[in-house]
Design a protein around this nucleic acid. Sequence first.
DNA 1: CTCATCTCAGGCTGACTGAGATCT
DNA 2: CAGATCTCAGTCGGCCTGAGATGA
Lengths: 156, 156
Amino acid sequence: METAEGTPRRLRALPSRLTNQAALSANRIVDRTLAAAGVRRYHYALLAALAEFGPASQAALGRRTGIDRSDMVATVNELADRRLLERAPDPADRRRNIVSITAAGRSRLTDLDRLVADAQEEFLAPLPAADRRRLVDLLTRLVDHHGDRRRAEPEA
Amino acid sequence: METAEGTPRRLRALPSRLTNQAALSANRIVDRTLAAAGVRRYHYALLAALAEFGPASQAALGRRTGIDRSDMVATVNELADRRLLERAPDPADRRRNIVSITAAGRSRLTDLDRLVADAQEEFLAPLPAADRRRLVDLLTRLVDHHGDRRRAEPEA
DNA sequence: CTCATCTCAGGCTGACTGAGATCT
DNA sequence: CAGATCTCAGTCGGCCTGAGATGA
């Protein structure tokens, strides 16, 4: 039987692959943790944006959370069904829905904060505090550089 | 118009989210780069494993690359169609296919190595060499700790 | 019998695109 | 008119499961 197989040298230290593998682990942990509360990452992100910035249009929420306009519709629907947020037409701009968090939503968000913190702890378990800071710093620089933007550079 | 929107505080420095965002950027860059050569990440990983370890069964290749047994079938099919690898029954164990890279596959892999290196450079652009090493080190520790395994811990 | 291997036939989520209706 | 907003419909790749056939 072939049990102890190694990863190819070309792949082993490839930064893009390492980042992706780490993200897979992180997402697995966070998803499992949030699933225990019956929510997904998008739900947490959306509630967080609403709690911190107040009522907003779906387009604005998409910009703040990185959730696509198309997925935003479904995410808002799901949370509205559970009464964790409310959607109402904007009287000042009738194209828009104004989305607001409810009291139940705020309360749920507080619970989720704890779960998310636990998940971070599990994800970062092997790293002491100083290394965690370094990691956050390095990743922040990468993410800032590439921008949340999904569009490519129009340079030609 | 609402152009300059910030990310919620709760999300901004969340390690799991930063890792995921960085992975998104990395994958976008690598995918776009490889797409120019008509291949996907799985193709590169599979060719790399074949070139470095020699002919192997599909199950062994899956263990080395992390490609699922189910996706492996399709990936091998695609590369076999392009004559970048060959699949032959193992005379010693008739359950197995022995997959081998072809000369064309090796040649293509060399081209892809260059593209992948360019993509890493683009991904890591904002980081000087010392920081790149640190990042690889930190991510490696995380990935090693959580294991490539997809199964959860049976501890209870 | 158990176990490994290969294959097919799916599911599911996240990221994303196109297009249309509505409105500024 | 251009441009923003919301919605629906659908694509795609990656990750994953179940189950069957074959064979060690």
